[in-house]
């Protein structure tokens, strides 16, 4: 953490790591927009973007360029500072979550042990919840500062959705935490590597609940009410144009990437490649295998996110709230009680 910044090598190492993590998340998010359109196309018997570059691979660049050259409009009666702050906050909170994700084990590079995790704090999961709960502010500030009642209403909708599903998300994780006994993502991953099974085997219901809540937190379909264009007169970013709109849309994809990584880390063994014993591999090889495993799992999850988006229609708002409060929270509590009972009766040695 910053307190130890006297060690300049350490600080440099972390800075480089942060830069790499942010670049990777940006690139992945960029190509997630491309993948989204490709997946959408393929599921609708179309081809998707294929004109910009080979297989349309330059499409995200073209989209970004288009957004940059669009006219920048700031509503005349809006609060200018907050109007700009909104998308920036959305982007910032999307990026901040990546700090506690372990991207791989420790490796020896140039004579020092390099930890592929920006900050191994012992409350990693709580940190994620903290940042996720702040994600609401980008939406709310943006919606309010637009000085448009529809934006405001969409912002309130989005915020109450996020808060409702955060609850179920937290409850579904408590059952997992009972098994792991740690809040650190690094420890949770290492337990899964050493143990025989990934956490999804012990917590299938918890995984399902967490996955659904992650969909809702990322504002992905079928929970994408904050940006329902046709039936709810668009969302909190109604008054936004140009790259500020791009920030809002882009932060959604970064959120999706990060939350898929978190699901992979918590439930699917993180950087643990199945059927491979990492301990036998050398440092660099283990690192590469781990990265391939983590990113493979993440990309599969991102594909499932998109697959769901292009399969399911959007929820109505009351259905969404019903599902959250009357469906997921009782289920999460039930899961918690069952897990607690099992932990109490079988694993007394803990």
């Amino acid at each position: 953490m910053t307190l130890l910044a006297f060690d300049w090598g350490f600080a440099l190492e972390k800075l480089v790591l942060i830069a790499i993590v942010i670049t990777v998340s940006l690139v992945v998010a960029m190509y997630a927009t491309y993948a989204e359109r490709k997946v959408a196309g393929f599921m609708q018997d179309r081809l998707g973007p294929n004109r910009a570059g080979p297989f349309g691979l330059l499409q995200p660049l073209a989209d970004g360029l288009k957004l940059f050259f669009k006219e920048e409009i700031i509503p005349s009666n809006s609060n200018k500072f907050l109007f700009i702050l909104g998308p920036c906050l959305a982007m910032l909170t999307a990026m901040m979550t990546s700090a506690v994700i372990p991207w791989g084990g420790k490796v020896e590079l140039g004579g020092r042990m390099v930890d592929l995790q920006v900050a191994d704090i012992n409350i990693g999961i709580l940190y994620i919840f903290g940042v996720v709960s702040l994600g609401v502010y980008g939406m709310m500030i943006g919606g309010w500062a637009s000085n448009n009642k529809y934006s405001l209403m969409a912002a309130l909708r989005g915020a109450s959705q996020a808060i409702s599903y955060e609850l179920a998300m937290g409850l579904s994780l408590i059952a997992l935490l009972m098994l792991t006994g740690s809040l650190s993502l690094r420890t949770i991953t290492e337990q899964q590597i050493q143990g025989n099974w990934w956490n999804i085997v012990y917590q299938p219901l918890g995984f399902l609940l967490f996955f659904i809540c992650a969909l809702a937190e990322c504002n992905r379909a079928p929970f994408d009410l904050p940006e329902a264009e046709s039936e709810l007169n668009m969302g909190y970013h109604q008054e936004y144009s140009s790259m500020k709109l791009g920030f809002f849309l882009f932060s959604e994809y970064i959120n999706m990437f990060i939350s898929c990584t978190i699901i992979a880390t918590l439930f699917l063994g993180g950087y643990d490649m199945p059927f491979v014993d990492e301990a036998k591999l050398s440092g660099i090889a283990a690192l590469i295998v781990g990265l391939v495993a983590l990113f493979g799992k993440t990309f599969i999850l991102i594909f499932i996110f998109m697959w769901i988006r292009w399969t399911l229609p959007r929820f109505r708002y009351d259905q969404l709230m019903n599902l959250g409060w009357k469906g997921l929270i009782p289920l999460a509590l039930f899961n918690m009680v069952i897990t607690g009972a099992i932990v109490l009766f079988t694993m007394k040695a803990h």
Partner: peptide, 13 residues
């Protein structure tokens, strides 16, 4: 439903 969309994923475009 997801099975149906997956079937279309591999269909001829």
């Amino acid at each position: 439903g997801m099975g149906i969309t997956l079937k279309h994923f591999f269909k001829k475009k």
